[in-house]
Design a protein around this nucleic acid. Structure first.
Lengths: 242, 242
DNA sequence: CCGTAAAGCTACGCCCATTAGCCAATGAGT
DNA sequence: ACTCATTGGCTAATGGGCGTAGCTTTACGG
């Protein structure tokens, strides 16, 4: 049995390929069997290099976050204000289109408590820093920076996910729509900076904060500012197990 | 063996519960075994009511889209312009928080060709119509309406997904950020209506259209304007099957 | 040439989806 | 009430994926 010459990083690299080959669903559909097939190896052999499927997923996620952060960084060097924001957003979209699977991997949450997720948490923090840096030039009040970061991330992320989802009829129109989104976002950030914040509609902010929120057995946390600790449970009460 | 009195709709309803109980990941984690346990029935019994796990997923998705459309509709009756937009966006977020699993189900794509997805496609179309209606009052030029719809959906969807993902430290701050996002979006739509569209940065629009796009073996289509037909394939070429 | 650790492998156990085929409960028609 | 077809449930069994255990062989330092 001639050795395949694998290694931890080689396996992760292969996993990245598999994930991207699967399109936006690729990350969710990642399977040790596929990676093993790609490596020319029997599935259990992978355990000599990675701890589990979950661990492999985490590694892919870390790489994806680091890559997209790097892309954003190099897309904004020497730029400021609206130019920086546009460059950043476009680099994200480009990355998402070129690496749909990895981009999806970017979404998984890092458990705030789990030490295994430390690397992912740190990568997430670094990625947020890039956004903050790109927004420097707008002169946002301190207490509005967070809003701007969230809005920019939300807008671009939502657009990209919908685009990757498959939709948005024609590519050209999509490019135009993306440009319109960026215009809206930059205008919005500028408005926020001018302190035109939250005129609202006379109903005050949303106060969704104290909704029941149906036993949200949410997993870990996101790649955002900072995580809150999640709750957990299984099926509430099976009615007649058998 | 006393009958459990199931039915197609009863099973789907249970699946909805299971999905929501699982938080944002609940939809992806949906399993026939869980539904069966919840119903007090052995897993194979479910096949008397639903065709497969995939079919059940589709049914849940249709219900979710219909519900969120209904929520949006009733949240915007009698409103116009910015008020309608805010009402609509808030109803989405509220639905997502109250039904995280179902909201995620909303994301799955409808295959433009598959007749099994017809109901899902139609539900998606209806849901887009509500957004268009809410944007009526802004007096957008025809060729900008689509951009506005996409931006609004993207912004809110991205925000909600990031929020559900687990992040966004404190709830209060999140409400405020959401409000800021809405302010930015309404301002953006108004700007679009004023024809201040796409000043861009002198680099023209993105032209991501002709990127290679790495063999994006994406599944079906999204719940957007209209689908384009997907490509498909498996692993490119296993290197040494065994 | 030897010995050892690392990198494969096969054999298993467990969980899930799905199919096949059996049997009891239900209810329409008599 | 009796019959019997339909229906909804069951068990058994297959196939695939993760993950563990334990064996074997390769590669390499002495």
């Amino acid at each position: 049995m001639p050795r395949a010459g694998l290694s931890r990083t080689a396996v992760v690299r292969l996993a990245c390929d598999v994930v991207d080959a699967g399109g936006p669903r690729g990350f969710a559909d990642l399977t040790l069997a596929k990676v093993a097939a790609e490596a020319g190896v029997a599935p259990p052999s992978l355990y000599k290099h990675v701890g589990s499927l979950a661990a492999l997923r985490r590694e892919v996620a870390v790489i994806a976050v680091e890559e997209i952060t790097a892309a954003g960084t190099s897309a904004t060097v020497g730029l400021a204000g609206a130019d920086a924001l546009r460059g950043l957003a476009r680099s994200w979209r480009r990355y998402a289109v070129q690496h749909p699977g990895r981009y999806s991997a970017t979404q998984i949450g890092a458990d705030p408590d789990d030490p295994a997720d430390a690397a992912l948490r740190e990568a997430g923090t670094r990625s947020v820093a890039v956004v903050a840096a790109a927004l420097q030039g707008f002169g946002l009040p301190d207490d509005r920076l967070i809003d701007a970061i969230r809005a920019v991330r939300s807008g671009v992320h939502g657009f990209v996910m919908l685009e990757l989802g498959g939709g948005f009829r024609m590519r050209e129109d999509v490019d135009r729509s993306f440009d319109a989104l960026l215009t809206m976002l930059t205008a919005g950030v500028e408005a926020l900076a001018r302190h035109e914040g939250t005129p609202g509609d006379g109903n005050g902010p949303d106060r969704l904060g104290d909704l029941p929120g149906p036993a949200t057995a949410g997993r870990p946390a996101p790649l955002d500012d900072a995580p809150g600790s999640p709750g957990r449970h299984e099926h509430p009460t099976p009615r007649r197990p058998r």
